[in-house]
Design a protein around this nucleic acid. Structure first.
Lengths: 228, 228
DNA sequence: GTCTATAGCCCGATAGAC
DNA sequence: GTCTATCGGGCTATAGAC
């Protein structure tokens, strides 16, 4: 994997690097909006002021460009799952931070979320192998953490796989379904307060279900706004 | 709206009706997999053993065919939301049935869910107006029901909009993200028991959060299996 | 590295015979 | 209703000049 990136990085060239990043950014946005089959190389090239022939000089094919975009998104996506095991003895803190982090990701990088969602909804025809290779072990690690918490009496026994699926869904929806959500909230686009309301509800529901002790968990710490 | 269908239905012709339904079904599956821009009329026509010219005899354009597909999906999608107000004095039953219904829809008609998800993730470029016209009032009606329950002391005061968004997300994910979920569950495709596990978790979380009285709600009634 | 040119194919939609 | 033929254009990718 990433053989192209390494081969190109042998000689470091800042101008080249910048155009390559511009192409990846434009491709991400367009693939997110219209899917792999709905975007042409010409379309992407025009966005960065290059020709499609030039674009094919930087990336060997349309599919390889698409793979590079998804690879970068999955890096970030998995980093949130890895963070769960950073709190090996505090389920509440781990879950609060996962929810806040994913919601911040949905707010700050909605196209990253959407390009990945687009691929998965389509049945992951191109990224299938990489998802299998990287997401399965990440989920197993998190499930192991949930199980250890339950053994230690730190939380209720839960089905960690379906809990993670619910967390994926309920946080990503604010990026992937932003068009419908902003419609039903009757505002041109989602605002910080909408993400805060989402965070309150999701944290409340998850902690009520997972934690043993408190009937009414502490209110959310507004952590979605940390980096605003 | 649906002017085409009505115009065509003036003279009833069973053979014509059947081919039209076949085309809609094939289009639904292909649009779900590859998005509007990733599917060609030729592709759809070959699936039903017709020519693309013939297909354009039944539907005036690719976009109109796509609209017809989405219109049918939204009909069903909204019927679940309408069912909430069918239990005006029993929040627990209303929520249980909504969750069970949407999960059954995800299991029995995953492509319906996916074609709609594909449009929404893409920013609803074509179906924007119809979503605004039909989903906004449906959500407002459900929020009004939640608020009435809270006033009557039947449930906690909740943000009905974000609760519905969470219900949409957590039930649809089992159709829209089936490719990734079946990968991480390490089985070729989702089984009934997976949907039952999902239902248990979602019902448990929602009732713990929304209902006032019981610390541990009754177990789910396995209603996802009702029509199997 | 960027350009022009082009191969070879697929696209949505229309015209008109039958 | 279904067919053949075709218009006008877009598509990915490659070749080769500079």
């Amino acid at each position: 994997m990433k053989k192209v990136a390494e081969a190109k990085a042998v000689k470091y060239n800042p101008a080249r690097e910048r155009l390559e990043q511009d192409i990846l950014a434009a491709a991400k946005r367009l693939f997110a909006q219209r899917g792999f089959g709905g975007v042409s190389l010409d379309h992407i090239a025009r966005e960065v002021g290059a020709s499609k022939q030039n674009l094919l000089y930087y990336f060997p094919s349309k599919e390889e460009l698409y793979r590079r975009v998804l690879h970068g998104v999955l890096d970030v996506w998995l980093s949130y799952m890895d963070a769960i095991s950073q709190h090996p003895d505090d389920p509440e803190q781990a879950l609060r931070e996962y929810i806040a982090g994913k919601l911040r990701f949905s707010r700050e990088h909605p196209d990253d979320s959407r390009v990945y969602a687009n691929e998965v909804v389509s049945g992951a025809p191109i990224f299938f192998a990489e998802i299998a290779e990287r997401v399965i072990p990440a989920l197993q690690a998190d499930v192991a953490v949930f199980n250890k918490w339950a053994e230690q009496g730190l939380c209720r026994p839960v089905d960690g796989r379906h809990l993670m699926i619910l967390l994926w869904a309920s946080t990503q929806v604010y990026a992937d379904w932003a068009s419908q959500i902003s419609l039903v909230l009757e505002k041109p686009e989602l605002e910080l307060q909408d993400f805060q309301a989402a965070e309150s509800l999701i944290v409340d529901m998850v902690l009520r279900t997972v934690l043993i002790a408190p009937a009414a968990p502490r209110p959310a710490k507004r952590s979605a706004s940390r980096k605003t």
